[in-house]
Design a binder for these strands. Structure first.
Lengths: 109, 109
DNA sequence: CTTTCATTTCAACAACGATTGAAATATCAT
DNA sequence: ATGATATTTCAATCGTTGTTGAAATGAAAG
């Protein structure tokens, strides 16, 4: 994960529709959801949903696989991990004050 | 940290100049750096630098304090921690696959 | 092979973000 | 006060991103 990839990932996270899509996909887990269901979940038109899903897939954050007539999207958790890691180490140089939030923070709440 | 604040933070991270500024400020640590030094560090005009610093300060990512003629900027590490935490828990629901990157990942590399 | 369903692509337009250079503000020294 | 330094603000411009609805693609069913 280089700076450019990371920036693209952050850009993907800075839009309401895309953030909602990610949350819906996280909730769905590895099984994923099809485009139509996602459009419903985030109350967006098919075209708008497709546009944003394509943007997210471009960053590697999510994957897409065709299943008959539908296209199933799912979170790539490994890739999401890379993004968090980038933010912690590459970007913030493993600042001690930041590592705390991880040690006792996210995991335990 | 709510969704809107988080999105603003991610937007702040999705621009080369701002990412460079953050990295420079992380390197500088709690002492921070003045606007001029930051402009030099990231090879940007004063006006451009000021514009982006204001955007970053708006998100709470950095703080600014006047010291005589200069304005010193510094990373708010607690706030950065909140951003990481948001990404891990609020956004990704503490997905097990993600927590790994934190447990053995960022801290040890 | 036509119809139906699911999704994407496209073109047009509106909204937003970034860059530039010049002018304004703030602080200190003479 | 005047001048010098540090930084911000402003208006103009430009490129990028988001939205819309209509048309195109792809896959299955009759």
């Amino acid at each position: 994960m280089n700076d450019q990839e990371a920036m693209a990932a952050f850009a993907a996270l800075s839009n309401v529709t895309r953030l909602k899509l990610l949350k819906a996909l996280v909730r769905a887990g590895p099984a994923g959801l099809n485009a139509g269901a996602l459009a419903d979940a985030v109350s967006a038109t098919p075209s708008r949903t497709s546009f944003h899903l394509a943007a997210m897939a471009e960053t590697g954050m999510i994957t897409s696989t065709r299943q008959a007539r539908q296209i199933i999207y799912a979170v790539d958790f490994a890739r999401m991990g890379e993004i968090v890691t980038y933010l912690m180490s590459d970007c913030c140089a493993d600042a001690p004050a930041l590592l705390e939030c991880c040690a006792g923070g996210a995991a335990s709440r």
